[in-house]
Design a protein around this nucleic acid. Structure first.
Lengths: 135, 135
DNA sequence: TTTCTAGTTTATAATAATTCTAAAGTAAAA
DNA sequence: TTTTACTTTAGAATTATTATAAACTAGAAA
């Protein structure tokens, strides 16, 4: 991902490119494979990688701005922490309860043959499939 | 649901039938349709319906014992609170983000034609489908 | 029955994740 | 440059949940 694209992510999220935000955006978006994180894990990675300090509030704010702009997705997983996903394409997840690990499943790997129609005046926004794992 | 069944739910959860627990079990299981609740909403319903007082800790403990015994399911939903479901059969959900409302979908209403196989040494425990709604 | 014991309820404290706040700092417009 | 509006930050506040310990109670034992 080019440097310009990082700035574009920030700009389209309504965020000025400050030092912290640029590092967060680089860390999240400058990679081949998508990945999953919590605010806590992101903070650890960032401080380790950059030697700067990141207030948790800054990370929360930035991540939420990215989510609002559609550059990140939140994933609903059992437990207290919120997981985020840099994969914003329509896709699904394996979830391993024992390790709390999420694994992406490409949308093409899941074919749904039949679903009920949405209730009274509602429309279907999207479909999420969770395949829970055990050993 | 017969009174005996309420006591059976408690017994099979390893819980003595105390006043509070009997009321909780009656409220949860003595109904035609399954329903969804949080600990907070359950507390409100119980105090309104019975005029007793229920410490939150009692509700947490009881609900978790029911879950552990398989009489309740936890549902992963966006947001901080944990939702529970008295429907313990294999099934799916509509979720309405705007109203935070969950609606059951019978397992037979969803047919999945293709899923990927589980990763390295893992097995599939179950599959949950969430159909997110919009207006 | 009454007594005793282990399990229970309760209020409150502790914890954990997240959000808020207000002061000090910084990017970018003027 | 100077100014202004937006940011970062540390720490306080909030929210959901879990832990604690003292008072209470169901059910076994006498």
């Amino acid at each position: 991902m080019k440097k310009l694209d990082i700035f574009k992510k920030l700009r389209t999220s309504g965020l000025r490119p400050t030092k912290q935000r640029v590092e967060i955006a680089k860390f999240l978006f400058d990679r081949e494979k998508t990945f999953h994180f919590t605010v806590e894990s992101l903070e650890k990675h960032l401080t380790k990688k950059t030697n700067f300090k990141f207030a948790l509030a800054t990370i929360y704010n930035t991540v939420h701005a990215f989510k609002k702009a559609g550059h990140l997705n939140a994933v609903d997983v059992r437990g207290k922490k919120t997981y985020f996903d840099t994969n914003i394409t329509n896709h699904h997840h394996f979830y391993d309860d024992e390790t709390s690990e999420l694994i992406d499943i490409d949308a093409s790997e899941v074919v749904i043959q039949k679903i009920p129609r949405a209730p009274n005046g509602k429309k279907i926004k999207n479909i999420e499939v969770f395949i829970n794992l055990k050993n």
